[in-house]
Design a protein around this nucleic acid. Structure first.
Lengths: 347, 347
DNA sequence: ATGAAAGCGCTAACAA
DNA sequence: TTGTTAGCGCTTTCAT
């Protein structure tokens, strides 16, 4: 039972020094054709593979990226995780996952634990870390990218959709569609995504001389969204909105269910429903949700690029906020404005 | 800029030896009250935290569990991942994620890479590894648990639902509901879940003197499932099944969409649809899917228990297959048998 | 209970 | 190009 095969054993078998073995397995290093061959042969026979941990210890690079994520219920996150993990693997990195509740203390604890693993970088998804912790990471030389959360003045890179612009465009779409009583169901108010989408939406309405007709809070939670929808729509007809923008798709499904099955309303005949994310179920015909698409693959690419740049050029890359344009995906859950330009909201 | 704080620096500041510091931070070790206090104080002031990698190197335990997973589209997997990650964190372990395509070669590569990180254990979800690789893991002393896949004669622990029994119970349910023309839409035929569900379903039908009326393959893929449904149901009425068991929920949504919106059929009036998994969207009222519930939390608990047992008692734990009973969740997508016992299929 | 010393498996100077 | 040497930061005997 050859428990652990070390480079030394390979070296002996190949009749070279241990460092020769190391060089053969180190991408940037130089070794002669002959040596390489001998070493590879011996390694093959012994079943040798370099120990990533030992390599990480001495080189100072673990090739591990820590991912802090609060919950995977909203399908946007597993999607992003899959893309992220694949993208990082292509660069020779792997993802160490830290699940955390959304309470700030827990997030900080998770990040501390991550740091203990000497990760080369950290991605936080759907959570915000304290400025204290951020400082620690910077001090430890570990780049941080916040995915899908914007946090001003924290000196870390944030990658988001252009949520303000998305909200604004959605307002234009609804007003152009002839809606008059336009409502909003908010996500968790601590989230930048929520804030920016709402701010953009309100700005867009204002530009068109409209104002929010009603507003409830769903906290990005299905049950709360359903309740919010009930409060908002279980009222006399004249007080009922004719359109509602829900802060994300995940809540919108619950809202549509409540409207149709709970209150017997028709979507979009009685009320238009639109949202934000474009997760897979939005395209399912039972929902067929008109929504702003978060381009997860682009967001991930920016995340990985930012991370790699900071890892490869420590200290010399200025953190910045990257906002990806979110295109409007027009489906069937909202009345479509007449003459709505074809190129402006294609599936 | 105190880049990396080491135990040596803490030792100097506390006026003790480096090994004293180590002992204070090592759970099982012994140190006097006084020493511990001094050390903790110094560590606090310096912002010291033990380096997990160095600890792993010398102790031989990384407290990392490798997770190999092929795709997260089916919501069962993110669900399971979230539960798994939380459960392992409670035990002081963390999850290193390896995404892989389902091609066997890639899976083996992923597992090799995992091994390089000196993981203490491996969980494979929705994928099967080669017997060669399995041997390597065992030889390396790394326990492997297959999650949601059964692989006979491989000497590793497998945790699944009791898929055969679940399929069988579903057959009883449909026959009891008075269905006569009962069809099946299969998942990927290389998967044990698919095979066992179908085998159980057929066995259950046979027991009731029924046989499969029609069968198509959806490969656990939405689009293929939709196509399969179309092929199966876009036929003269007399050739149309009156019930269909879909191998998982993920496909069932596409099937229901095709039936209702593509072909204009009513569910369950024209055709009953049932499936397997009970992922979150199954409870959404637009689908309201009758399905066999995979109890992800129980499955994860067994997975973690098996892993921990094998880590703590290397070589002395016999691998075994663990099958969790899947309860029938009766909702509205299938005709319910009269007098169907209340206790036998409660939400 | 504590300190000294060895060494986990590897990379990276440095010399040759 | 190659071998020698010195650690990376820690846990763990082994003395004391």
């Amino acid at each position: 039972m050859p428990d652990k095969v070390t480079s030394l054993q390979v070296a002996e078998r190949a009749g070279v020094s241990q460092s020769a073995v190391s060089r053969v397995f180190t991408p940037g290093a130089s070794a002669s054709q002959k040596t390489a061959e001998k070493v590879r042969k011996a390694a093959e026979e012994l079943g040798y593979r370099p120990n990533s941990l030992a390599r990480a210890m001495v080189s100072g690079r673990s090739r591990i990226i820590g991912l802090v994520v609060a919950y995977l219920e909203n399908h946007f996150y597993p999607d992003a995780l899959e893309i992220l993990s694949n993208a990082l693997q292509e660069q020779g990195y792997h993802v160490l996952v830290f699940m955390t509740s959304r309470r700030p203390g827990n997030i900080d604890d998770a990040v501390e634990e991550i740091l203990d693993y000497q990760v080369d970088g950290i991605v936080t998804a759907s959570v915000s870390m304290s400025s204290d912790l951020t400082r620690r990471c910077i001090q430890a030389g570990v780049p941080v990218v916040q995915f899908n959360r914007l946090q001003e003045g924290l000196d870390i890179t944030c990658v988001t959709s252009d949520n303000f612009d998305g909200g604004r465009e959605m307002a234009q779409f609804l007003v152009a569609g002839g809606h008059e009583k336009i409502a909003y169901i908010a996500g968790w108010e601590g989230a930048s995504t929520q804030r920016d989408r709402e701010a953009g939406f309100r700005a867009g309405l204002a530009e068109q001389d409209h104002a929010l007709f009603a507003r409830e809070v769903g906290n990005f939670d299905s049950d709360q969204a359903r309740l919010a929808a009930n409060v908002m729509f279980n009222v006399p007809v004249e007080k009922r909105p004719d359109a509602v923008f829900v802060a994300n798709d995940h809540m919108a499904f619950a809202v549509m269910d409540e409207l149709r099955f709970g209150l017997g309303l028709k979507v979009p005949a009685d009320v238009s429903v639109v949202a934000f994310d474009d997760v897979p179920p939005s395209a399912w015909r039972a929902y067929n949700l008109t929504t702003m698409r978060q381009r997860a693959n682009l967001m991930v690419r920016e995340t990985v690029d930012a991370l790699m740049a900071q890892i490869d050029h420590p200290g010399s890359i200025r953190p910045r906020n990257i906002a990806i344009k979110a295109p409007l995906i027009v489906r069937g859950s909202a009345r479509v404005p007449e003459n709505w330009p074809h190129d402006k909201g294609q599936q």
